[in-house]
Structure formats: C-alpha cells, structure tokens
C-alpha cells in the first residue's frame, strides 16, 4: 500500500510545481517516469545491507558420540543401552534475543529428521544488523499453528507427524530399541506432543549480524534429553504416545529436559 501513497504524493508535488498549462504537458513524462521506476517497487528492499542471515546446522549426538541410526550403541544416564531408528521433531520460531530482551523471530517451522541431512539446516534471513545475546526456539508447534487448518510447508500433515486421533502435531518422535535389565532387546516408542508439551529452549549466544551470513552449529544431545534434570529410565518409560493421563509426568519431564539437551556455537 505504501508505494501507492508515495506515488500519489509524487504526483501531487509534481502537479504543484507546474501550475501553468504548458508546464503541465512538461510534467507528463516526469510523472510517467516516476510511476515507471516507483510503481512496482517493493518497500522492504533496501539497497544498504542493513540485514543479515543465519544458517544453523543441527547435529545429533548421544553423549560425545555423533548419533548413528540403527545401532544399539548408545547408553543413557539410567544405564540403558539404546538405539535410534527414527528421530524427528519440529524446531520452530527460532528467535534471536537482543540485549534489551526483545526478539527477532524467524517464524520458522522446521521438521528436523536425523535421517535427512538437508532437513537439518535452519535458515533465517532479513535479520536486522546488530548484536544478539541469545537464541530461543520451541521444540514443537505453538497452539495457534497446532490447531490451524492451513498447514503448509513442513507443517503439511502428510509428513507422518500429525496425530491420527487428534488435531495437531507430534512434536518429537524417537523410535528404536533398548536393552532391558534382563538383557532383552525391547522396543522403544516416544511420541511427544499436545499443547501442554511445547518446550522452550533458550541459549546464550554472542552473535553479531552485520549484513552477511553467519553459520551456527546447534548440537542436540539425546543423552542429555534423557538425563537432565529428569533421568528417564527406559525400563520404566519405553512407550508413550501422549494420549493418556499416565503420559503427563513423562511429558513434563522431557519438557524440562529439552533446554539442557541443546548447545549452540557460532562457526564464523
């Protein structure tokens, strides 16, 4: 809308400058030229690089070891040996925090899949230049979008992260196996979600945006997710679909653990 108002102002001003009849004719090419160059100009574009971008790569670990899918080789704080066959989750609303605590929210909804490297990159652009002291994001989908019917992009319900009985998304999925106390291999299924499960992760960060692209590394340690501060013992918790009152404590425990499971660093 702004460009229209600007065009009108230019025309008014030009008309005033040429009050006499001959000069009106003169003003036609001037005004036409104005419309030509201004008519379709996007106001958000700025020739000066007053904004920059980020490229955040997510890496998955079990403790200090990079995550290997399909291997029964990880050990959590409860002493369970476990395996990850599927690890998918929503990482959304990545926001950079300024020193006055205000946020710049990328408004993203990224479905991260440990089995798909291209899904593990979160990009943000048009970030105002300046110094940022932290980053905040959600594991999951905020209530408004969780109950929306206009799902697109990574929120398309066809990605296997939409409950079959419930409106909304499975925020986090871990499927695999673990070895129980008797030494038997048992299956593990964690489907974490519902509005009460939205987990907020806030991390300190020293980042200057100065018109270029900055690369960040976000490390997600599954061992920490099952340890800090609430130890999850797969002998007790090995099957949760967030569909029963019995799931509440597990949801609450993971929600408290998520912030400790992530760490971030700036590469360049």
């Amino acid at each position: 809308m702004n460009f229209r108002i600007r065009n009108l102002l230019i025309i008014f001003t030009t008309m005033k400058m040429f009050r006499s009849r001959p000069s009106i004719l003169l003003s036609i090419p001037l005004i036409a030229f104005t419309l030509l160059i201004n008519g379709c100009k996007d106001d958000t574009e700025d020739p000066l690089p007053s904004t920059g971008s980020i490229k955040m790569t997510v890496e998955h670990y079990t403790g200090s070891t990079p995550l290997l899918l399909g291997q029964l080789n990880a050990t959590n704080a409860a002493g369970n040996t476990y395996q990850v066959d599927l690890l998918k989750y929503y990482l959304s609303n990545v926001s950079l925090i300024r020193s006055d605590s205000s946020l710049f929210n990328l408004g993203n909804y990224d479905l991260i899949d440990a089995d798909n490297p291209s899904s593990q990159i979160v990009r943000g652009k048009d970030i105002p230049n300046g110094n940022y002291i932290g980053i905040r994001f959600f594991i999951g989908v905020d209530s408004a979008r969780n109950n929306s019917i206009d799902q697109s992009g990574d929120l398309d319900p066809s990605y296997g992260m939409f409950w079959p009985w419930n409106t909304g998304y499975i925020f986090f999925k871990h499927e695999g196996f673990y070895t129980d106390t008797a030494g038997n291999i048992q299956s593990l299924l964690f489907h974490y979600g519902t509005d009460i499960a939205l987990a907020t992760v806030s991390l300190p960060l020293s980042l200057e945006i100065n018109g270029t692209e900055k690369s960040l590394n976000l490390r997600f340690d599954l061992n920490a997710l099952y340890a800090d501060p609430n130890i999850i013992d797969f002998n007790i918790d090995n099957y949760h679909q967030s569909d029963s009152g019995n799931d509440r404590n597990w949801i609450e425990a993971l929600k408290q653990n998520f912030p400790q499971a992530f760490s971030i660093s700036v590469i360049r």
């Binding site: 229209r4 009108l8 419309l35 379709c40």
Partner: peptide, 9 residues
Amino acid sequence: LFGAALLAC
C-alpha cells in the same frame, strides 16, 4: 494519473 497510481501493482 490518480488512477494509474492506484492501479500500479
């Protein structure tokens, strides 16, 4: 011109 300005884009 008023019309043109309104119609642009």
